[in-house]
Every structure is written in structure tokens, then in C-alpha cells.
Amino acid sequence: MNYRVFGRCGWAVSEVGFGAWAIGGGWGKVEEKDAISALHKAIDCGVNFIDTADVYGDGRSERLIARVLRERREPVFVATKAGRRLSPHIADGYTEENLRAFVERSLKNLETETIDLLQLHCPPTEVYYRPEVFEALDKLVAEGKIRYYGVSVEKVEEGLKAIEYPGVRSVQIIFNMFRQRPAELFFSRCREKRVAIIARVPLASGLLTGKITPDTVFPPDDHRNFNRFGQAFDRGETFAGVDLEQGLRAVAELREILPAGFTMAQFALKWILMFPEVSTVIPGAKNPRQAEENALSSSLPPLEEGVMEKVRGIYERYIRSAVHHRW
């Protein structure tokens, strides 16, 4: 496993982290024993950064992580998120009182006295224009409830606004072969300000693993079934906002340029890691085999420039017009 500096926090984090949405819920049923085994395998492979949220399984994900870390001696950084428990999920709900309550609940779930990294969980755009929200987070840092804070965003513009606040140490954003816009401007701005970048949805909800076909049927409780057109939350979170049929055509061409020794998932993860501004990428894993496959992408050789150019060409032909300026 290779490690990268996590912005101004100074942490040395595994460049492949663990995204814990799937073990919480929203991706079909994941047995507890499989979730526990996946987390242990990831840590065995050198992963020391885990990303979760208080709404993943209504706290199940956080509690599973706490259970695993009780059994480990390795230092592991845990990032969680707050805000999506609001109902309705509106900007006016992002008050100090509510944020404090969310933090206290996550502290209990994670069995810790201090949260390593708290992220606002894809709040409404208006929140980024409310300095009092970030002042409330500064208070929680001063009190020792959270060590650092950042934001998880849907849009590049939200990320650019967020990093104007000096306390924002990280931005989590969708970045993958099908969502390339962040690399155009956002990455350079983060580099200038030494803001860490967490790349999420790296496999486009499994689309980039090459395992999904036109005949794949997703369970009713899988967001790839119930949120394909943004019915439950932002459409960009499901298949990275790409139309499934169009995405499958693009994946077929990506398969033709798959480097020797890579799986499709590892190809997609290594593509992201070719961008030095990315601090860590957080694929999910439902079992130990997936966790190990993801982690091994760190030690695979860099992609050749010609391959990177071909990926860009596939994006331009199949994806760009539909997604590039939406997020």
C-alpha cells in the first residue's frame, strides 16, 4: 500500500481507503459477518482511512467500524458525515444545535471521544454561503469533539466555494473515469490551498467493474434500483449520473484497453490514483475479496500515457455531453 499526505492535516493516509456506505445499507443486503471481514481484510492490506456517515444504515456502518477497531492495534483514521439526518434536508437545518446533536450521536456510535474528520454530507448549495455553519464547526474543533472538518459535495462549484473557508481541510467529490471535470480546475485550487481530496464513487456504482450487464437486476433496497433517475437523492450518486445503457457501451471500449494484470475495478482505481492531487480514493467492499482487490490497485504499475489518452477519448465520445457540466 502506498500512502499520501492528507492536505494540511498532515496525516499519511492509504491512497486506497474504504468506503463504508455499502456495509451500512443502500446497496442490497450485506451480512454483518461479511462487512466485518471486509473491514478486517482492508486493514490487513494497509488501509488506514475509512469513510462512513451517520445515515449509512441509520448508524450501522459507524457501529460496525467501531466494533472492528476495538480489535485492531493499527492507527486508522475514520471520517464520518453529518447533515442528511435532517428531514426535510434544507439549509435552515444546518444549525449549531443540530450539528452538535449529530456529532454526539456519531461519537457514541464510533465509541470515541473525538471524530478524526467530520464532513458536511452533501448539504444544499446555500449552506456554503452561510459562514455561521463553518463557525459552528470551528467551535466543535475547539471543544475537541472533532479533530478536523471538511465537506462532501455534489458539484465542483460547491467545492470551490467550500475551500474559501480556512477551516475546511478536505473535500470529498465524485471523481472517476466517467466524472472527469474536477481535474480541470478544482484539483489545482485544492493543491494551492493544500486541501485534501477524497475521491468517491470511484467505480461509478459498480458500472466500471465491468460486472454489470443490461440484464442485471438490482434488489429493491439497492440505490441502483430506486435512485437511477435521482428519485431519492442526487442522480449523480448512482452510476455517477451516467445513463446505464450509454455507460455499458463505454465500459465495453474500456475493456478493450485493459492493461495486463489489472481487473476492471483496479484499472478504474489506478486511473484515479494517476492524479497526485487525490489524497485517497474510497471504493466500497461487501466482502474480503473485494476489499483485497481494491487495495491491491495501489501496488500495480502506473498507467501509460497512451492508456490515459484513450480513457479520455472514451469519455469524450460517450459521457461528456451528458454529465460534464451538470456536476
Results as ranks from 00 to 15, higher is better:
residue 255 R to Q: 12
residue 259 P to I: 07
residue 268 A to Y: 12
residue 213 T to Q: 07
residue 214 P to F: 00
residue 194 R to V: 14
residue 227 N to Y: 03
residue 251 V to E: 10
residue 243 D to L: 05
residue 212 I to G: 00
residue 208 L to G: 07
residue 228 R to A: 06
residue 240 A to Q: 02
residue 196 A to E: 02
residue 258 L to H: 11
residue 200 R to S: 11
residue 241 G to W: 13
residue 195 V to Y: 00
residue 267 F to K: 11
residue 232 A to T: 13
residue 202 P to Q: 14
residue 233 F to V: 08
residue 260 A to D: 15
residue 228 R to I: 11
residue 241 G to N: 08
residue 215 D to A: 15
residue 221 D to N: 15
residue 270 K to F: 08
residue 255 R to W: 05
residue 257 I to M: 01
residue 259 P to S: 05
residue 249 R to W: 02
residue 205 S to P: 02
residue 226 F to C: 06
residue 234 D to C: 11
residue 224 R to Q: 13
residue 210 G to Y: 04
residue 236 G to C: 02
residue 198 I to P: 05
residue 219 P to Y: 10
residue 221 D to S: 10
residue 256 E to Q: 13
residue 198 I to M: 13
residue 201 V to I: 15
residue 258 L to Y: 12
residue 226 F to G: 09
residue 204 A to F: 02
residue 235 R to L: 05
residue 251 V to L: 01
residue 195 V to H: 02
residue 243 D to K: 08
residue 243 D to P: 00
residue 250 A to I: 00
residue 213 T to G: 06
residue 224 R to L: 10
residue 206 G to R: 11
residue 220 P to H: 13
residue 224 R to A: 10
residue 267 F to V: 01
residue 237 E to C: 14
residue 203 L to P: 01
residue 248 L to G: 04
residue 213 T to N: 04
residue 243 D to M: 04
residue 256 E to I: 04
residue 198 I to G: 03
residue 194 R to W: 02
residue 264 M to T: 03
residue 216 T to G: 12
residue 263 T to K: 09
residue 216 T to H: 06
residue 242 V to R: 08
residue 194 R to E: 15
residue 218 F to N: 00
residue 242 V to F: 13
residue 270 K to W: 04
residue 231 Q to F: 07
residue 208 L to S: 11
residue 267 F to W: 00
residue 234 D to Q: 12
residue 225 N to V: 00
residue 229 F to S: 05
residue 268 A to D: 09
residue 244 L to I: 01
residue 204 A to N: 08
residue 254 L to M: 04
residue 199 A to C: 10
residue 207 L to W: 06
residue 219 P to A: 15
residue 249 R to K: 15
residue 247 G to H: 04
residue 271 W to F: 11
residue 196 A to F: 05
residue 198 I to T: 14
residue 233 F to N: 07
residue 255 R to M: 11
residue 222 D to H: 08
residue 261 G to P: 04
residue 195 V to I: 15
residue 204 A to R: 06
residue 212 I to R: 05
residue 233 F to W: 14
residue 216 T to A: 09
residue 232 A to Q: 11
residue 239 F to S: 10
residue 197 I to Y: 00
residue 245 E to I: 08
residue 198 I to D: 03
residue 201 V to H: 09
residue 254 L to I: 04
residue 229 F to K: 11
residue 254 L to K: 03
residue 256 E to D: 14
residue 220 P to K: 15
residue 223 H to V: 03
residue 208 L to A: 03
residue 225 N to Q: 12
residue 206 G to T: 08
residue 263 T to E: 06
residue 236 G to K: 12
residue 239 F to A: 12
residue 250 A to V: 02
residue 229 F to I: 02
residue 198 I to R: 06
residue 197 I to K: 09
residue 225 N to T: 06
residue 240 A to E: 08
residue 222 D to M: 13
residue 196 A to G: 14
residue 221 D to W: 10
residue 235 R to F: 03
residue 260 A to G: 01
residue 268 A to L: 13
residue 235 R to S: 07
residue 227 N to G: 06
residue 252 A to R: 13
residue 230 G to A: 07
residue 207 L to C: 00
residue 263 T to L: 01
residue 228 R to K: 12
residue 227 N to S: 09
residue 224 R to W: 08
residue 225 N to G: 01
residue 262 F to M: 07
residue 200 R to F: 12
residue 268 A to T: 03
residue 245 E to L: 07
residue 224 R to S: 09
residue 222 D to Q: 08
residue 218 F to S: 07
residue 234 D to R: 10
residue 227 N to D: 07
residue 229 F to R: 15
residue 260 A to T: 14
residue 251 V to W: 03
residue 267 F to E: 01
